[in-house]
Simulated assay, not measured.
Amino acid sequence: MWLRILGSAAGGGFPQWNCGCPGCRAVRTGSRPCRPRTQSSVAVSADYRQWFLFNASPDIRIQIEAFPALRPHAERTTPLRAVLCTDAELDHTLGLLLLRESRSLEIHATPAVHKTLRDGTSLLRTLEHYCDVEWRPVIPETDVPLGNWLSYRAFDVPTTKRARFGSEMEQGRVTGYRVTDERNGRTVVYLPGVQELTPEVRAQLDDCACLLVDGTCWRDDELIHLGLAARTARAMGHLPISGPDGSLDRLSPLPIEHKIYLHINNTNPILLEDSPERRSIEQRGMEVARDGLEIRV
Rank of each mutant, 00 (worst) to 15 (best):
T121Y: 08
T126K: 12
I62N: 06
T121I: 03
T38H: 11
D91C: 13
L124M: 02
D87R: 13
T38F: 00
V83W: 05
T77K: 12
E65L: 13
D132R: 14
D87K: 02
D87E: 02
F67Q: 13
F54M: 07
E89L: 12
T126S: 08
P137V: 10
P72V: 01
H73L: 14
K115N: 15
T38Q: 12
E106M: 14
V42S: 02
I62M: 11
P68N: 10
E101Y: 10
H108Y: 15
R76D: 14
E101C: 06
H73M: 04
L84H: 11
R76I: 06
L105F: 11
L53M: 04
D87V: 12
L80W: 02
A88M: 01
G95R: 06
P68Y: 02
H114K: 03
A43Q: 09
D59W: 06
A66E: 04
I139A: 13
L99T: 08
Y48P: 06
D119K: 09
H73T: 11
R136F: 08
D87M: 05
Q63E: 04
C131W: 06
R61I: 09
E75T: 12
Y130D: 15
A82M: 07
I60A: 00
F67A: 15
S122T: 11
L117Y: 00
N55L: 11
T86I: 13
T93F: 09
H73F: 08
G120M: 04
W135M: 05
L53E: 05
T116R: 10
A69T: 03
L96N: 08
E89P: 03
L98C: 07
R37P: 00
A109E: 07
Y130Q: 14
H129R: 15
T86C: 14
N55P: 07
L94V: 00
E128V: 03
V44R: 08
E89C: 07
L98N: 11
C131L: 03
A46D: 05
L97S: 10
N55K: 11
L97F: 12
P68H: 02
V133Y: 09
P58Q: 01
R136S: 09
D119Y: 01
F67E: 15
L117V: 02
R71T: 03
L53K: 06
Q50V: 10
A109S: 05
T38M: 05
L124F: 04
E106V: 15
A69K: 00
P79N: 07
R136W: 02
L80M: 11
C131M: 02
L127Y: 06
S122A: 11
E89Y: 07
G120T: 04
T78V: 06
L84D: 02
V133G: 04
S57L: 06
F52D: 06
C85N: 12
L94D: 00
P111W: 10
G120D: 01
R81Q: 14
L53S: 04
T77Y: 13
F67R: 10
S122M: 12
V133Q: 03
T110F: 02
L98K: 12
T38L: 13
A74W: 01
V113G: 05
Q39E: 15
T116K: 00
E65F: 10
